[in-house]
Amino acid sequence: MRTTVVTLTGAVLLTAGLAACATSTAASTPLTAAAVAAPAKSGAQPAALTYDTERVPAGAKLGTFTTVDNGQTTVHLTASGLLPGTQYGSHVHTKPCGAKPADSGPHYQNEKDPVSPSVDPKYANAQNEVWLDFTTDSSGTANASATVGWRFRPGEANAIVLHAMHTSTEPGKAGGAGDRLACLTAKF
């Protein structure tokens, strides 16, 4: 009898959960979170890497998830263990994190700039890329989110990179945010 009750209860909860999902058009990706570590000398890399241990100390934590609703994508970023009261730029990049900062490729763009690196404000802007600039609080913690009017192309957005400063919007410098300090591999 006990097994039957548990199974029935599970079926009722599953049915209620499916009904709740059916009334919502939003979808979410699971949280990707990791503590940053130095790049491995060879082989597989940690999910989160620091390239500048002064600005992003080993052990700092990064996390991200996305929600998609009515054709819009919102990317959420959480960070802790960073320097207090410090500005960082952050963007979604095309490739997974690697041992070298450049391994994560360029910024993901909904409409790809034919010129690389992209510094043209027509392409390098917060509507065509995902910009998650933030300033940490007094404990080195921050949350950022950005909403864009499109969805990621499958397999083309694979990391979030933290940069040394907030993102520039000037022609010839648009999308630039200084050195790559850390990276979190996350498939969007």
Rank of each mutant, 00 (worst) to 15 (best):
P117L: 00
S139F: 08
N128H: 05
Y108E: 09
V119E: 09
D113A: 04
D133G: 12
D133Q: 07
D120W: 02
T141L: 06
N110I: 00
D137Q: 02
S145H: 04
G140E: 09
T136P: 07
S145E: 14
W150D: 09
V115K: 15
G149Y: 01
Q109M: 13
P106Y: 06
N110H: 15
F152D: 05
Q109H: 06
T136K: 07
T147I: 02
D120K: 02
Q127G: 08
D120Q: 05
A124W: 10
S139G: 09
A146M: 03
T135C: 10
V115F: 07
F134W: 05
V148T: 02
A126H: 10
W150Y: 04
T136L: 12
W150M: 00
S139R: 11
P121Q: 01
F134L: 15
G149T: 09
N110G: 01
Q127A: 11
R151P: 00
T136C: 03
N143W: 03
H107Y: 08
S118D: 13
K122Y: 04
T141K: 12
Y108Q: 05
V130T: 07
Q127E: 12
N128E: 03
S118W: 12
L132G: 02
F134Y: 07
D137I: 14
F152N: 11
Y123S: 00
Y123R: 02
W131T: 05
A146W: 05
A126L: 03
K122I: 08
D113N: 14
K122M: 03
D120G: 09
A126M: 08
F152A: 05
D137R: 07
G149P: 14
P106A: 15
Y123C: 02
A126Q: 11
V115W: 06
P106K: 08
V115L: 14
A126K: 13
A142Y: 03
N110F: 13
S116E: 15
V130M: 10
H107M: 08
V148Y: 03
S138Q: 11
G140R: 10
S138E: 11
D137A: 07
W150E: 04
S145L: 09
T141N: 15
T135D: 07
T136S: 10
A124L: 08
S138P: 02
E129M: 06
S118L: 09
Q109I: 08
T136E: 02
Q127P: 00
G149R: 01
T141Q: 12
S116Q: 15
N143K: 12
N125F: 01
H107K: 03
A126D: 13
A124D: 05
S118E: 10
Y123W: 06
K122L: 08
Y123Q: 05
G149V: 02
G149M: 01
T136V: 09
N125M: 00
E129N: 13
D133C: 14
S145P: 00
V130A: 04
P106M: 07
S139Y: 13
F152W: 08
N128G: 04
P121S: 00
